[in-house]
Amino acid sequence: MRRSHAVRSLIAAGAALVGLTATLGAAPAGHAEDGAGDLPVNYNFLLGAIAAGAKLDADPPGGNDWTCRPTAAHPRPVVLVHGTLGNKNTNWQAYSPLLKNNGYCVYSLNYGVIAGTPPPINQFGGLGNIKDSAQELKVFVDQVLAATGARKVDIIGHSQGTFMPEYYAKFLGGASKIKKYISLAPLWHGTKGTMPLSMIAKGFGIAEDDFPVCAACVQMGNESQFLARLREGGLLVGNIEYTNIMTKYDELVRPYTSGSEPGMRNLVVQDYCKTDFSEHFEIASDPVGAQLVLNTLDPAHPQPVPCMVVLPFIGPLGG
Rank of each mutant, 00 (worst) to 15 (best):
K55Y: 13
K55P: 08
L56M: 08
L56P: 00
D57M: 01
A58G: 00
A58D: 03
D59M: 11
D59K: 02
P60V: 13
P61E: 14
P61Q: 14
G62H: 13
G62T: 15
G62K: 08
G63R: 04
G63T: 05
G63E: 06
N64A: 12
N64L: 08
N64H: 09
N64V: 05
N64S: 09
N64T: 09
D65N: 09
D65A: 10
D65H: 09
D65I: 13
D65R: 07
W66S: 02
W66N: 00
T67K: 11
T67G: 08
T67Q: 10
C68Y: 03
C68L: 03
C68H: 04
R69L: 14
R69C: 09
P70F: 07
T71R: 13
T71D: 11
T71W: 14
T71H: 10
T71N: 10
T71I: 13
A72M: 12
A72C: 06
A72I: 15
A73H: 11
A73L: 14
P75R: 04
R76T: 03
P77R: 08
V78G: 00
V78L: 11
V79G: 03
V79E: 03
L80W: 02
L80Q: 02
V81F: 13
V81R: 06
V81K: 06
H82C: 07
H82D: 04
H82G: 03
H82M: 14
H82I: 08
G83A: 08
T84N: 01
L85H: 07
L85D: 11
L85F: 11
L85P: 01
G86P: 02
G86C: 05
G86M: 05
N87Y: 01
N87P: 00
N87E: 01
N87A: 01
N87M: 08
K88D: 07
K88L: 09
N89Y: 11
N89E: 07
N89W: 15
N89D: 06
N89P: 05
T90Q: 12
T90K: 04
T90H: 06
T90Y: 01
T90A: 08
N91Y: 10
N91A: 12
